[in-house]
Nucleic acid binder design. Sequence first.
DNA 1: CAGTATCCAATGAGATACTG
DNA 2: CAGTATCTCATTGGATACTG
Lengths: 109, 109
Amino acid sequence: MAKVKKQAAVSCPVETTLRVIGGRWKVLIIHFLLHGTMRFGELTRSLGTISARTLSKQLRELEADGVVDRKDFGEIPPKVEYSLTALGRSLEPILQSMEAWGTAVETRR
Amino acid sequence: MAKVKKQAAVSCPVETTLRVIGGRWKVLIIHFLLHGTMRFGELTRSLGTISARTLSKQLRELEADGVVDRKDFGEIPPKVEYSLTALGRSLEPILQSMEAWGTAVETRR
DNA sequence: CAGTATCCAATGAGATACTG
DNA sequence: CAGTATCTCATTGGATACTG
């Protein structure tokens, strides 16, 4: 299998996952989308303090990584719905264990 | 239960976990320490291209978060050993599921 | 409504040099 | 050996204003 590119370093798959869900709002976005499809404005309100620019960027990145599906209805006024792909939904157990661990950490303080 | 402080936002525990393990080298450091205690120089060599400054910082942060234990033998030449605390070892299942997910993502490309 | 364009500040992390 | 001190740069994300 050739020369493994260059800087494969060590145990990369974990870092791949981190790159995908590591953005400032990404796990929160995924969290909401696990409950169902949402429109851009709904996400903005649910997330509370995110700017349009930032939400847009995080969604595009999640889409590029195959986690989120973007459906543009091509209407005016615009209507766009975001949902999780199968790959995105497969993140649920990870989020759950991360939530459990985070809760434990916060508790023990 | 009062007013929930201020910016509790939404589902924070997951983000707590992300803040703890989200550093550039942290999951890799934890990965190695899951196999046993290591000295500073060993970690440096294992990680390949990390600078002393960066490794030092990441270790201090992991220590502050209760994940890593630092044992200074107070000898000359210096000898310092790093290991995981119980809390640190409890991250193992999370890393494993993240590794599985990351592998799946890399595979499907 | 669902964005994009610009500009800007904060953080993270690398390179290099030095030290008890 | 195990760091610390500086300096620097790249990336991330926020604020604001504008648009099809």
